[in-house]
């Protein structure tokens, strides 16, 4: 029921207020990041009187920001690839195969999506120490991959089961084994779903803090998120610098979002209902 003309003004006002609230802290962050520390101390909220990119050069050249970003990128890409392949194979078996424990695996995966990582992190820390993986990206990659598998299974199963069974049957009749059927019949059809899963999991891995903080205590081996928290304590008097790094950490995600909004919306509402 459309309400047009004057009657819609209060609604636009409400939505505009919410939009301002959603964007204000981000605008504040970007504006602060181009102020000098001196200017910030006298003018924390206003527009910058002079714009400086010194904080950014400082962040990129003197601080290990790029190294941390590289670590984050490696961790994200490898964990997403591993978990997607492992999850796709399991989802395929659940959709088209018949085996003992099929429904247990499926509902177990759904439950596992919601298990808080904080519950698992203490025993996993000890395990990673024993495996001599602490302070290496390997520790984080292995644990992230495990944690991402259940969502991959759940999301891809929901997509795979919409693939017409006849297509799969035809491939089998033609003599294709399950591996070929999966990769040459089902995966090409499931491209949008695979992209969605990869996007959602990449965001999760890029943004994760707790596990990275605990497993990567060495400054150089940190991911961007874990590394940034060090700056907070170290540069208490140079907020513009800290927020320049924060802006740099948010930028790739925001750009990614603008480019693939549909995949985001589809993937992140998957657990909830259409």
């Amino acid at each position: 029921m459309k309400i047009s003309g004057l009657a819609s003004i209060p609604r636009h006002v409400l939505l505009a207020i919410l939009t301002v609230i959603a964007l204000a802290p981000l605008i504040f962050m970007v504006l602060t990041s181009v102020k000098s520390p001196d200017e910030y101390s006298v003018n924390p909220a206003g527009l910058p009187k002079s714009i400086t990119f010194e904080n950014y050069t400082h962040a990129l050249i003197d601080l290990p920001t790029l190294r941390w970003a590289m670590n984050s990128l490696i961790v994200t890409v490898v964990a997403v690839i591993i978990s997607t392949v492992v999850g796709a194979m399991a989802a395929y078996a659940i959709s088209f195969g018949n085996f003992r424990g099929r429904t247990t695996l499926l509902s177990g995966s759904i439950a596992a999506i919601m298990v808080p990582p904080v519950v698992l992190v203490v025993p996993m820390f000890v395990t990673m120490v024993n495996l001599k993986l602490i302070n290496t990206l390997g520790s984080v990659i292995v644990f992230y991959s495990c944690l991402l598998v259940p969502f991959c299974i759940f999301f891809l199963y929901n997509f795979f089961r919409t693939v017409p069974a006849e297509l799969v049957e035809a491939a089998v009749v033609d003599g294709a084994g399950p591996i070929r059927t999966l990769f040459s019949v089902v995966v090409p059809l499931a491209k949008p779903a695979l992209v969605t899963v990869a996007v959602v999991n990449a965001i999760w891995a890029w943004n994760e803090l707790l596990i990275a903080l605990v497993f990567l205590q060495d400054e150089k081996s940190r991911t961007l998120m874990a590394g940034m928290t060090l700056l907070q304590g170290r540069y208490v008097t140079n907020q513009p610098l800290v927020l320049a790094v924060a802006t740099l950490s948010i930028l790739p995600v925001a750009l990614f979002y603008l480019l693939s909004q549909r995949a985001f919306v589809r993937g992140l509402t998957a657990g909830i209902g259409k």
Partner: peptide, 27 residues
């Protein structure tokens, strides 16, 4: 009942066992 589904879910079962069940039991 065939074998391939078991092989296909094996990596996922290992991941869930190692990343969820083992730490839960340990904790």
């Amino acid at each position: 009942r065939s074998t391939w589904p078991y092989l296909f879910v094996l990596p996922a079962v290992i991941a869930i066992g190692f990343g969820f069940i083992f730490p839960l039991v340990t904790v």
